[in-house]
């Protein structure tokens, strides 16, 4: 039922859009035109290529963020004060919008995929890190007590108690990371890339191709929605769903 209501909401919005497009077709081009451009771009392969390019940058950026956050998380499970040592630096860097690092990323990594990946990594790191730290804080002492009283060594405590305890917070952080990754990649591609959804949005706006612009905006929304649904599945199966 909630899905049907959601679909009704989208259809109502589409109807209103179509109605108002008659009065200002530059700002709100008719939906029929947008759908036609969408399928044309899909058939020609531009849209699919841009989706793949942006997705690869998001995946690469999130992987870089994971490769930093996970070892730090494992270290934090051994050395409890580590998050406190990191907190000052993290709180200072976190409020800076990742896109503000774009000039530095371009100077450091040149033109191409690397600066976009670096910006995504920076944006994706913080939710992951906070998820892991929060998860470590929420490990129940009574579970550690029970495990040790049953003879568990540190390796078993880590794999069977610490990891599952942290998992819901980590998966929540991962969902936020991927969401932020999409924000960052679009912004980064608008500034300095030669492909991707953000680049296409920028190009369409410069050429005043509004149908194409909306096609890409809807595509960004859809890809974000699909990646979130994918991660929600894991969250329910291996995260909060197992901790009720």
């Amino acid at each position: 039922m909630p899905r049907i209501r959601g679909l009704i909401g989208i259809l109502l919005f589409a109807g209103l859009w179509q109605f108002f497009s008659a009065s200002n077709s530059l700002l709100l081009p008719p939906l029929t035109d947008i759908i036609s451009v969408f399928f044309k771009s899909l058939v020609e392969g531009d849209l699919l290529r841009d989706i793949i390019d942006s997705t690869c940058r998001v995946v690469a950026g999130v992987c870089v963020a994971l490769s930093i956050a996970l070892p730090l998380g494992i270290l934090s499970s051994l050395w409890k004060s580590l998050p406190e040592y990191c907190s000052g630096l993290v709180e200072m860097i976190r409020p800076i919008p990742p896109i503000a690092w774009a000039p530095i990323a371009i100077i450091a990594f040149g033109i191409g995929d690397a600066p976009a990946i670096a910006i995504v990594a920076l944006g994706a790191f913080f939710p992951l890190w906070f998820g892991i730290v929060q998860g470590l804080k929420n490990i129940k002492g009574s579970h550690l007590y029970a495990a040790k009283s049953l003879g568990a060594n540190y390796r078993l405590v880590f794999t069977d108690i610490i990891v599952p305890s942290v998992m819901p917070f980590f998966l929540h952080g991962l969902r936020l990371s991927v969401g932020l990754g999409w924000f960052c990649v679009v912004a980064a591609e608008m500034l300095g890339a030669s492909s991707g959804l953000g680049y296409a949005v920028q190009l369409s706006s410069l050429n005043l191709e509004m149908e194409r612009l909306y096609t890409y905006l809807v595509t960004i929304g859809l890809t974000g929605y699909i990646s979130n649904s994918f991660l929600m599945y894991f969250d329910t199966r291996y995260g909060s769903g197992r901790h009720e």
Partner: peptide
């Protein structure tokens, strides 16, 4: 010397 707890203290993910 394993412990049996008042509030069970089972591992909820297992």
């Amino acid at each position: 010397r394993p412990v049996v707890f008042q509030d069970h203290n089972l591992f909820p993910w297992m």
